[in-house]
Amino acid sequence: MKAVITVVGKDTVGILAKVAGVCAAANVNVEEVTQSILAGTFAMIMVVEISRCNVSFDQLQQQLAAAGEEKGVDVKVTRQELYDAMHHI
């Protein structure tokens, strides 16, 4: 079961480490990371495997959102199927 973590906001030191730290603690495997600056905004996308996640999806969302808040960025985690449905036929 895969999910996509998106981080959008102002680039600062340690965002990747912070988000990856939450993932590691929750036993979520990070499979892919891409990051870019789009129109001055920092955007990072992580594809993660959540089958062995040791907290509920709800809790994972809350922990990631809280980590984002600390760093002043918006962090969301969403199941991958949403993007497949919307953008692929």
């Binding site: 870019s36 955007a43 594809v47 969301k76």
Partner: peptide, 11 residues
């Protein structure tokens, strides 16, 4: 294959 642009568009 997920595309960064598509993901950000959805968000």
């Amino acid at each position: 294959m997920l595309d960064t642009k598509d993901i950000l568009e959805t968000i």
